[in-house]
């Protein structure tokens, strides 16, 4: 792409125009969009694992059905996103199989929260309440992405997330109005997930790649803007439940309209995500590999089933 073509592309971006899969685009733009959507899609798939652990142990049939439905939605979102990424990656010779298996070899990362343990039923609720809440805030900011196929598919994903949000809140509310033991479970779970949620949006000082994504308007809000939106929505809700947030620095400044908070351990979380070194990373990746490889014969059989049956 010549300098003039690049300038014309950037003019389109700054005019707020949207880019389609078949448009001319700088290689850097293509690679950044693939990186973003690939990571997003794989995170949806890996995001099903912590909750799936609770399907056999759900406290009643309705909760079990809801949890299965949510797991099914998350895998479905992964499929939709990988499809979008795949259209952009095809000219680079990259297809679905590789996009899926990259997670086995650490060539694609997934969100820090999905590396963490979900030891009690309260975690199933807190994941729906806080992790989905955070994910919706992030995804809402991408509804205006310059890459149109991504923005379009996110409309559907956000609509389906509305059930996830209510489902998570329903579990949390049931525990919050329950016994001391149940309230204790809820508080422990909040304590467990809070630092992960602060890391979830990424460091205030963004990476070079994230900065480029902002310039290309692939994403439109900074990490810190998203984190502030999250804190502003969810801290008052946690407090309303009579729960505490494990951060003594948490404070709203009515002049700057910003929250102060304790930084999560950036270095540790960063290392964990990069090296799949979290408490559940390896176990969940192994399950993912087992599912993918164990079902290879089904994918193979489907090709055979699609082949014309010779007439007698």
């Amino acid at each position: 792409m010549s300098d003039m073509q690049y300038q014309e592309f950037m003019n389109r971006i700054s005019r707020g125009e949207k880019i389609e899969a078949t448009d001319e685009m700088p290689d850097e733009y293509r690679k950044l969009v693939i990186k973003q959507i690939h990571m997003h899609g794989i995170s949806e798939v890996m995001g099903a694992y912590p909750e799936k652990e609770w399907v056999p142990k759900a406290p009643n049939l309705r909760r079990k059905l809801a949890l299965i439905a949510k797991v099914q939605d998350e895998i479905g979102h992964g499929q939709l996103l990988l499809r979008v990424a795949e259209d952009l990656a095809r000219p680079l010779g990259k297809m679905r199989e590789e996009m899926i298996t990259d997670v086995f070899t650490g060539r694609v990362k997934f969100h820090n929260v999905f590396h963490m343990e979900a030891p009690t039923w309260a975690d199933a609720g807190i994941i729906g309440f806080l992790v989905d809440g955070g994910a919706i805030i992030t995804q809402a900011s991408l509804l205006d992405s310059s890459y149109a196929p991504y923005a379009r598919v996110l409309q559907r994903i956000c609509a389906e997330e509305s059930f996830h949000m209510q489902h998570g809140e329903s579990i949390v509310l049931a525990l919050a109005e329950g016994t001391e033991y149940q309230r204790g479970m809820l508080q422990d779970s909040i304590n467990r997930w809070w630092p992960s949620m602060m890391f979830f949006f990424g460091p205030t000082e963004m990476s070079a790649a994230a900065d480029r994504m902002m310039e290309y308007r692939i994403r439109t809000k900074t990490n810190e803007e998203l984190r502030q939106k999250f804190i502003n929505r969810y801290v008052p809700r946690i407090w309303a439940l009579g729960m505490t947030v494990p951060d003594d620095k948490l404070k709203y400044d009515s002049e700057t309209k910003l929250w102060s908070y304790t930084d999560p351990d950036w270095e540790w979380f960063g290392y964990m995500v990069k090296n799949n070194a979290g408490p559940k990373s390896q176990e969940r990746i192994a399950l993912r590999r087992q599912a993918h490889e164990g079902q290879a014969w089904v994918r193979e059989a489907m090709i055979r089933a699609g082949e014309a049956v010779p007439t007698a």
């Binding site: 949000m165 209510q166 809140e169 329903s170 919050a176 309303a240 439940l241």
Partner: peptide, 25 residues
């Protein structure tokens, strides 16, 4: 999950929806 709204009210909070989060952005 319509009962969420009544429960939030008991905790003196308002129920929110995905639209609220989208509008925040």
């Amino acid at each position: 999950y319509s009962e969420n709204a009544q429960k939030w009210k008991q905790f003196k909070e308002r129920a929110i929806t995905v639209e609220d989060l989208v509008n925040d952005i």
